[in-house]
């Protein structure tokens, strides 16, 4: 019978302690200390997020001089940023046309260039209007007229 001598070397390994490398200590002499809490935005790309909601179609009832509409902005951007929205003609003039290209002229009023007050807003509302002169209504054949406006959003400095 052989005696087996087993020598077991117990290796006392210091476990990798889940404590930040730069810890501070309190003791009987130093009874108060501070730890810094900080946010990590490394996963966030760009300037943040936003949504502009505007009407897909703006219906104008015949003979109405002024029709009011609105667009809304919600945003969560970096500090110091804001959203600017511009409502504009597509370049063919502020005229609604019918199928035979007869025109119904109109103008835009209100806030056609809107800018939020800060980087974080919820449903910030901007009002604008479409105006048609009574003389224009009186001279227009009864028909369906339409035109296109463009909404453009940009992240700008607040």
């Amino acid at each position: 019978m052989k005696k087996v001598i087993s020598l077991v070397m117990a290796l006392v390994m210091m476990m990798a302690i889940m404590v930040p490398a730069f810890a501070a200590e309190l003791n009987a002499t130093t009874q108060s200390g501070t730890a810094t809490v900080q946010t990590d935005t490394s996963a966030i790309t760009g300037d943040g997020t936003y949504t502009v909601t505007y009407p897909a179609t703006m219906n104008i009832v015949w003979s109405t001089a002024t029709t009011n509409f609105e667009y809304k902005v919600s945003s969560n951007l970096r500090t110091g940023k804001a959203i600017q929205v511009v409502v504009a003609d597509t370049g063919d003039g502020l005229n609604m046309l019918n199928a035979s290209n007869a025109t119904l002229a109109y103008t835009l009023g209100g806030t056609t260039t809107g800018k939020t007050t800060g980087p974080v807003v919820t449903d910030a509302t901007f009002n604008y209007s479409i105006n048609v002169d009574s003389a224009v209504w009186a001279a227009a054949a009864i028909d369906t007229y339409s035109d296109t406006l463009t909404f453009t959003s940009t992240v700008v400095d607040a």
Binding site: T53, A56, I60, T144, T148, F151, S153
Partner: peptide, 29 residues
């Protein structure tokens, strides 16, 4: 309620239609 369209970081420009439906509003005139 009018259908809403939206802009965001990925879609920064969009169109909206100004519409007068005179035939519905005024019929034959």
């Amino acid at each position: 309620p009018a259908f809403a369209a939206t802009l965001d970081v990925n879609t920064q420009s969009g169109n909206s239609t100004v519409l007068v439906d005179g035939i519905t509003d005024k019929g034959d005139g």
